[in-house]
């Protein structure tokens, strides 16, 4: 399709990214969560999933949701360079979403992690998958990470023992507003990969088929009474 000349000027340069190979994780509940890259045509389901959480201040869901909404819209409208979106789906229903950006061949920029289904470490698994994509598949050496909620800080900064580079500001700075920048280095990742990152590949045709069509969550534990 021909792209309008002005539109072409507005788009960032893109580096072709290696695809993230899908995997399946059996959660503690016994449910199978397929983790895969989201496709551009799935933007409606992704944005529709995120939208209700913009009004949830508890656990900073509002700020994470509103920022992720913008990131995914930016990805869809081609206003962010080299962004990727991974989704975790149980029988096709979206359980969580992560966004991230490949900045250079050596550097990744972790954006946001949004967990819909809680209590099963869905967010922890999706974050680990995001790091796997950055370091194992895209081959970067480091990922810059910030936390915008105490839950995020506990899960990433503490559990991964991330390197605190906030003292190197502004030379080292995450894209998200100047909050303290932490870094997952390759050596840190190799130290925790076996206990943080899991999943089985290849995903069976049955499981792939089950997650082929993304479905927006019918209920949100964060929004009592919400029904879709």
């Amino acid at each position: 399709m021909a792209i309008d000349a002005m539109e072409q000027k507005l788009r960032p340069p893109e580096i072709p990214l290696k695809p993230y190979p899908p995997k399946v994780i059996t959660l503690a509940s016994g449910e199978k969560m397929v983790v895969r890259e989201a496709k551009r045509e799935e933007v409606g389901a992704l944005l529709g999933t995120i939208y209700p959480l913009i009004g949830v201040p508890a656990d900073f869901y509002d700020i994470v949701a509103v920022r992720m909404y913008g990131e995914i819209l930016g990805w869809y409208r081609r206003r962010v360079a080299n962004e990727f979106v991974l989704v975790g789906a149980i029988d096709g229903e979206i359980a969580g979403i992560v966004t991230s950006r490949h900045v250079t061949p050596k550097l990744g920029m972790s954006l946001h992690t949004l967990t819909i289904k809680r209590g099963l470490r869905v967010g922890a698994q999706l974050f680990a998958a995001k790091m796997e994509h950055h370091l194992d598949i895209l081959g970067e050496e480091e990922v810059y990470i910030v936390a915008e909620s105490p839950n995020g800080f506990k899960r990433w900064m503490i559990e991964y023992e991330l390197e605190d580079r906030s003292s190197q500001f502004p030379e080292v700075r995450h894209e998200l507003g100047g909050v303290p920048t932490y870094v997952l280095t390759r050596s840190l990742w190799e130290a925790v990969r076996d206990v943080k990152c899991t999943g089985t590949r290849p995903v069976s045709d049955t499981d792939l088929k089950a997650s082929a069509k993304l479905v927006m969550p019918r209920e949100y534990p964060q929004i009592p009474g919400f029904k879709r």
């Binding site: 059996t26 943080k196 899991t198 089985t200």
Partner: peptide, 16 residues
């Protein structure tokens, strides 16, 4: 609920 396969017997149990 949780299942024995997911939290003890399965290939991902060590991380889950």
């Amino acid at each position: 609920e949780c299942t024995i396969e997911a939290i003890a017997d399965g290939p991902e149990a060590n991380v889950v």
